[in-house]
Each structure stands twice: as C-alpha cells, then as structure tokens.
C-alpha cells in the first residue's frame, strides 16, 4: 500500500478540480470494494473527470458489553483513508465513485459508504479470491445491490462457474470481467451494475 504513492496526490493544484454545474443537486454513490492492489483506484481513475482524491473518515468505536457491566467500555478511534472520483452525469446528477479497502477491519467505513448507495462493485483478482469473501458477506447483510467484476491481470484462467462457486455467489448476481485500466471496460462495469439494480427493481415490482 505504501508503494502506491500515486494514490496520494499532493493536492497542490486545487484548480485542477473542475466546478460542477450550478444546477447540480443530486449526488449518487457507487462503491468499489476489493482487496489490496486489486485495481480500485485504477478503476476510479479510468472513469473519473477529476484525478482521484483521497480523504479519510475518523470513527470512534465504543465497546459495548451488554452482559458484563463491570467492564469499562473501550473506546478506540480509527482512521481509514479512501479515495474517490466524480462523473457529472447531467445537469442535476453527479456520480461519486468510492474506492474502499476490502479488509475486515474497515467494515464500519463500508456501512457508512453503503448507506444510500446505488450499488457496489466487488473487484476481484481471481488469483486471490478469498480477499473478497468478507466484502460480499457484508454487502449481502446490508442488502446493498452489487455485482462482481474480475479484474484481468492475465495468467490464471478460471471459468465463470469456478469463480461463482468459490464466491458462493447468488445466481442473480452478475459476474463480469474487466480491465480496470480501460475507461471503456470500467464504464461497462458501472453500466452492468445499474442494469442489475434496474432488474432487481423490476423483480420486486412483478412480485408485488
């Protein structure tokens, strides 16, 4: 992680951030979650109209021990960095893409990011599939719509069936492959996610 210096821009050119339309009034969120070095920042950069920016959330975690009242509740403050990019969709809607680390200890950041989010992309390096298990568990638990995108680093070839099985993916969850370095490919991943949310909506409509 420390080697990814390009992830930490110097913030020396604030003017490089173009202003939004004066009429912009609706921020939309999509979260890209995945393990270390899986290509989250690369994907954000590929489609963003601004150079990916980095910021941090500080969370206070208060220990909660219901059964043991004698225990002093532990309070820890944790800081987690995440990066994001932006796409002005039209005169009103602005899409923000968040790259969030997939490690278990960042669950509290995801719950923040996931709430109100349009959906999530789980970026997977198929050589390190287990890195994404926890994120998928959390998304399922949170009820956030998501798709899985396998970032193509070349080399090992697994079939879609093998990847689905290793991820224990619900058959309704789309699995796509991508090259996060490509704008077109990353854009297609986002389109697949939105179409998936549309189909979830349609399924719910027809069920009710």
């Amino acid at each position: 992680m420390a080697s990814a210096t390009s992830d930490r821009p110097a913030f020396d050119q604030p003017s490089a951030r173009p202003a939004l339309h004066a009429t912009s009034d609706n921020g939309v969120k999509i979260v890209i979650v995945g393990g270390f070095g899986v290509g989250k920042t690369t994907m954000v950069r590929s489609v963003s109209e601004i150079r990916p920016l980095n910021t941090e959330e500080t969370m206070t975690l208060a220990g909660e021990s219901v059964d043991d009242t004698t225990e002093v509740s532990a309070k820890t403050s944790t800081t987690v960095a995440f990066d994001f990019g932006r796409i002005s969709l039209d005169q009103h809607n602005v899409l923000y893409l968040f790259g969030a680390p997939g490690q278990e200890r960042f669950w509290f950041l995801w719950d923040r990011l996931f709430s109100g989010t349009l959906g999530a992309v789980v970026l997977v390096d198929i050589r390190r599939i287990a890195d994404s298990w926890y994120a998928i568990d959390r998304l399922e638990a949170h009820g956030t719509p998501f798709i899985v995108a396998c970032n193509d680093f070349g080399g090992t070839a697994y079939s879609y069936e093998q990847v689905r099985e290793a991820l224990d993916l619900d058959p309704a969850v789309p699995l796509v492959s991508c090259d996060a370095r490509s704008r077109g490919s990353s854009k297609n991943v986002l389109i697949s996610l939105v179409q998936h949310v549309q189909s979830l909506y349609a399924t719910q409509e027809s069920a009710s």
Binding site: N26, V28, I87, S88, L89, D90, H92, N93, L95, L118, K187, L190, I191, V194, Q195, V197, Q198, Y201
Partner: peptide, 13 residues
C-alpha cells in the same frame, strides 16, 4: 433508487 433516477444514471454513463 427510483427507476427514473436509474435511467438518468444509465444515460449519463
């Protein structure tokens, strides 16, 4: 998200 918003996002993308 509401269907009209999803459609707008899709068009924008």
């Amino acid at each position: 998200p509401a269907p009209d918003l999803l459609e707008q996002v899709l068009v924008g993308l």
